[in-house]
Nucleic acid binder design. Structure first.
Length: 252
DNA sequence: CCCCAGGCACAGC
DNA sequence: GCTGTGCATGGG
């Protein structure tokens, strides 16, 4: 919930003891927690939502044994962040989150995304387009504001079919996403991984780049992409998330 | 006050 | 195709 994935920007940490997070959902409030036994608990009627969000079907131990095979770095990352899951958020809210993310930092991204919420949900493309310029300016998106507006216009105008990406191969969906202003290789991979559940996507940001350089001796984006695909295959997204967290702690 | 941030678009090779 | 550069602005 606090690993730089969309829930980091969309959900709130509860004040009470224990791991507890909540989010408004229209008129009601959905909350999830982890009990003393390590089990996930959701507010009444929200178990299904929580299971999907936290990808309860993923077998972490099986994933660990696959991605950490003959890989001391990955084994270390898993040891340190054991239990961290990939998450599945909405397609649009994921796209908006990472349109806000470029050349920014996590605290600011969260502030930006929080400003784009109404009743706990990210404003629809049409609603963003209707925001008065002054109000939009106050969100402090900087130059990303133009990217958000232009991308929202393409989605709202039917020029871009976001849910339609589900029907494409990962590679095709990635190319399609990069038609959107402000979406390059990295943002596209984040949207595919966190918003479309494409676990083979491998977002290559500054931290992952440093990790790949220092720990695997791989430098260029091209090399990184090929290396990740060969080494971790369809689980590259999980490997990336653990590398990201380890890099932020060790390569600060 | 300075440095950097979950990058991208664009220009120039 | 690859490399360098500017970018608005807040957080630490």
């Amino acid at each position: 919930m606090e690993s730089g994935q969309p829930p980091h920007f969309l959900w709130n940490r509860g004040d009470e003891e224990g791991r507890h997070y909540w989010r408004r959902l229209g008129e009601e409030k959905i909350s999830i927690r982890q009990n003393a036994a390590g089990e996930m608990q959701a507010s009444p009627g929200h178990a299904k939502h929580a299971s999907k969000l936290l990808r309860a079907g993923d077998d972490l131990e099986k994933i660990y044994s696959t991605i950490a095979a003959e890989d001391a770095v990955m084994a270390r990352a898993i040891e340190k962040f054991r239990g961290m899951r990939l998450t599945k958020s909405g397609e649009w809210e994921t796209l908006v989150s990472f349109l806000c993310s470029q050349n920014s930092n996590m605290a600011r991204i969260r502030n930006n995304v929080q400003m784009l919420l109404r009743d706990g949900s990210v404003l629809a493309p049409e609603e963003i387009l209707q925001l008065p310029p002054m109000q939009l300016k106050k969100i402090n998106l900087g130059y990303r504001e133009q990217y958000l507006l232009a991308s929202a216009a393409m989605v709202a105008g039917g020029e871009f079919d976001l849910p339609g990406l589900h029907g494409l191969s990962c590679e095709d969906a990635r190319a399609e996403l990069q038609r959107l202003p402000g979406v390059g290789p990295k943002v596209a991979d984040c949207v595919l991984l966190y918003g479309f559940g494409r676990l083979e996507a491998f977002p290559n940001d500054v931290w992952v780049g440093r990790a790949m350089q220092k720990w695997y001796g791989v430098a260029t984006p091209r090399q990184v992409k090929e290396f990740a695909e060969r080494k971790w295959g369809v689980l590259a997204g999980y490997a990336q998330q653990y590398l990201f967290m380890l890099a932020r702690e060790k390569l600060r």
